[in-house]
Design a protein around this nucleic acid. Structure first.
Lengths: 341, 341
DNA sequence: GATTTTTTGATTTACGTACCTCAAATTCGC
DNA sequence: GCGAATTTGAGGTACGTAAATCAAAAAATC
């Protein structure tokens, strides 16, 4: 049978109370005694029964998610995943709270984080805007012992406990590689289409993209990036403009939202002259475009995975346990029409 | 607060004992009383705390994994993931047992499954060989109320509870699409390189690959598939042979194991004449080859994810709860050198 | 060596559910 | 309306761990 704390106590020749002190890192145990207990744990292969422990603790973990009130498909999906997770979380003694803040609004985000800090939750997750005041308040939370996870968009390494999102430089590089290879034997420039280059993720994607194009496809002309501000109408205009200026436009890498507009613009072109299009985030619209050969690849981050991973990481941080590293790496999914989920 | 059995008892105006009788389907409760309790459960939204219930029952879930004693990197990795999961499982009142069977040996697999059935575990997972006797015994297990998950390789839909693995037809299609597009502007035939076409997964990958090549790249010649039997030396010979017969060999899609041999053969060619190579499973060898531009893409299934998913599915089946569908879908990962984990 | 401080032991209660026993109340059959 | 059968109640113990209290023992300090 699986050993219990009682077996550890007996084996180490100490009392249950001492075992408890060691296991839960409480003070008041001599180093030698602590070691005796640890040896017993190792010798018997004791593993704490988490179900029993949580039952005994009667603890309810409260985690707060701060999400931007953005209306693009990805953010709507992300919000949905958090809500779904919140429903399931109750069964595992967790309570998730969702707080909305205006998008791209640093003071509002900072204010929300400060308000959250006062409530002293067991963990906080938020879609970061990489600005000094945000970093500062995040650091304050971490210093106060509240685990902080950045979701989708990161801060500097030092400002948070964990980042649940993709490596955007790698995503940009991947897009560059696919674009370059898919365009073999076809001339013409490539247009990088951003949401806003003020946003760190977008800058990183562009950097990665530009780097690969320079390294491996140096002969290919890369146009100056344009910013669609995640707005479909504006994006549609920008793409139309680029197409009229560059009749031989061969490729588009879109790494912001507002792809509905991009697809509308592409749709109008005859199939023969359509550029290779690679964009981010699998939504109903981009999926349909992929299926009907309007676009060529979608890079995706799995919002559901990001949310579940965030919760696991926060929980582990809250009770000092470890996570399975590989499980918490957020993949850069590449979808062609053939491997759609 | 979450309602407990006590709340149910109070709300229904019955004793704890009666609530217990109803919840656990014991006899000795009048229909009217039973209904009152059920109404209370519905009204309060009671959900049994499985952790507490299992603690009380002293139940330990025993899940058995049957793995082929294969020495290729993928199977070694899979075995490692199961072992790692087994270590973690103890903390959650689960005991994983690993049973080895000779690879590609139907009678041995059937015998192992039958032996397992006698032990009546709470769930069984195994790497299937799609043969009638295997289907039959799997169906018998399911009929006996033991959840059965096929891992990596599937049986027919009707023979098991769940399949934790990738869609191999889709994987083949994806490989076809990548091969076709990467080869634009380059002439020459493509070689499909199998482990064994006796194995269902490999047949499916080939079917998907051939379908896409026919649909979209009809002008490209596809050579007759060769079988490397997952053996590096033999694979190396086969590739060498193909290269000497077809001096203009433009692409290779390898969907079996033994890729070490393939890579050795490729390595000897001057960079200029190297075919586009797409293969399966990310290992140390294939990763190195990808980084050094010897191969062009790796399709991968995440063994760790497959194992963790299997355990979640078995657990849910064992206690009649539901899983998050999206979480249990095994992705076809596409790795280029730029998005390696 | 007496005093203070630190460490350890013994014991208890609690978490939410399962499962057992025994007695009391209710219903049923005739 | 009686005895018998069925249903219900009340209460307890158990699972493995957490966390608390209070007393006892050991170690450190002067």
């Amino acid at each position: 049978m699986k050993p219990t704390v009682h077996d550890i106590a007996a084996h180490a020749g100490v009392s249950l109370a001492t075992v408890d002190r060691v296991l839960n890192g409480r003070s008041g145990v001599r180093a030698v005694t602590r070691q005796r207990v640890e040896e017993a744990v190792a010798a018997l292969g004791f593993v704490r029964d988490m179900a029993a422990a949580n039952l005994a603790k009667g603890r309810v973990y409260t985690f707060t998610f701060i999400l931007p009130a953005n209306d693009n498909s990805f953010m709507i999906g992300l919000r949905g995943e958090v809500a779904a997770a919140a429903r399931r979380a109750a069964a595992e003694r967790m309570a998730l709270r969702i707080i909305d803040v205006p998008a791209f609004d640093v003071p509002a985000l900072v204010a929300a984080l400060e308000a959250v800090a006062d409530a002293r939750p067991d963990g906080v997750a938020f879609v970061a805007i990489d600005a000094p005041p945000v970093r500062a308040v995040a650091q304050r939370l971490v210093a106060a012992g509240i685990p902080v996870v950045t979701l989708v968009s990161d801060l500097g390494e030092a400002s948070r406990t964990h980042y649940a999102g993709i490596d955007n430089i790698a995503a940009g590089r991947t897009a560059g590689m696919l674009t370059g290879r898919f365009l073999q034997g076809r001339a013409g420039p490539v247009l990088p289409l951003s949401g806003s280059l003020m946003v760190r993720d977008h800058r990183e994607r562009l950097d990665g993209f530009a780097a690969v194009m320079a390294e491996r496809f140096a002969e290919r002309a890369i146009l100056a990036p344009v910013e669609g501000r995640d707005d479909p109408a504006r994006t549609e205009d920008l793409v139309g403009e680029a197409l009229s200026i560059h009749g031989d436009l061969a490729g588009i890498y879109s790494f912001g939202a507002g792809n509905r507009g991009l697809i509308r613009a592409i749709e109008r072109l005859p199939a023969k002259t359509r550029p290779v299009v690679i964009l981010h985030e699998l939504t109903d619209v981009t999926r349909a475009a992929l299926v009907s050969d309007l676009i060529d690849a979608v890079l995706n981050q799995d919002a559901g995975h990001e949310v579940r991973s965030t919760i696991r990481v926060l929980k582990a941080a809250a009770d000092g346990s470890t996570v399975v590293e590989a499980q918490e790496r957020i993949r850069i999914d590449i979808f062609l029409k053939d491997n759609l989920p």
